[in-house]
C-alpha cells in the first residue's frame, strides 16, 4: 500500500511540481491550498508526511506544524518544512516548531525526493 503525502502550498505552480514529483516516487498525494485546510486534512486523512510551506495565508506553516506537534494522536506525522525565506531566524523557527526537516526554496527535486524516501523508509 502506498504511503500518503500531503502537499500544503498556496503557490499553484509549486504544487504542480511537487505533486508530479511525489506521484512519480510512488506516493499517494493530497493537496491543501492554505494552512487551515492543511491542518484539517492532516487530522482527517492522517498522511505519513507533510510537505508544508511556511508562508501561507490564514494559518502559516509554522502554526500548522506547532498544532500538529501539540496533538499526540498525530505524533508520527513527519513534517518537512518548505520556505522561501532563507533567514536563520526562519530556520530556527521551523526547527523550534518541531519540523523533522527544513528545506529552503528553490530546492533540488532529487534531494527532496531522496529525503522523503529516507524519512518514510
Amino acid at each position: 500500500m502506498s504511503q500518503r503525502v500531503l502537499i500544503a502550498d498556496d503557490e499553484p505552480n509549486i504544487v504542480v511540481s511537487l505533486e508530479f514529483m511525489m506521484k512519480r516516487a510512488g506516493y499517494e498525494v493530497l493537496v491543501a491550498r492554505d494552512g487551515l485546510q492543511a491542518l484539517d486534512m492532516i487530522r482527517r486523512e492522517r498522511p505519513r508526511l507533510v510537505l508544508l510551506d511556511g508562508m501561507m495565508p490564514g494559518l502559516s506553516g509554522f502554526e500548522v506544524c506547532e498544532a500538529v506537534r501539540a496533538d499526540d494522536a498525530l505524533a508520527d506525522t513527519k513534517i518537512v518544512m518548505l520556505t522561501a525565506k532563507g533567514r536563520d531566524t526562519d530556520v530556527a523557527r521551523g526547527v523550534g516548531a518541531g519540523a523533522d526537516a527544513y528545506v529552503v526554496k528553490p530546492f533540488s527535486t532529487r534531494d527532496l525526493v531522496d529525503m522523503v524516501r529516507d524519512m518514510l523508509a
Partner: peptide, 25 residues
C-alpha cells in the same frame, strides 16, 4: 528584503523544480 527574497524564490522554485523534472523524466 525578506519579502523581495520570498517573491523571487517562489517563481524560481517552480522553474527549477519543473525543469529538473523534465530533465529527469
Amino acid at each position: 528584503m525578506s519579502s523581495v527574497t520570498h517573491e523571487l524564490r517562489t517563481p524560481l522554485t517552480s522553474i527549477r523544480a519543473l525543469s529538473e523534472l523534465m530533465l529527469d523524466v
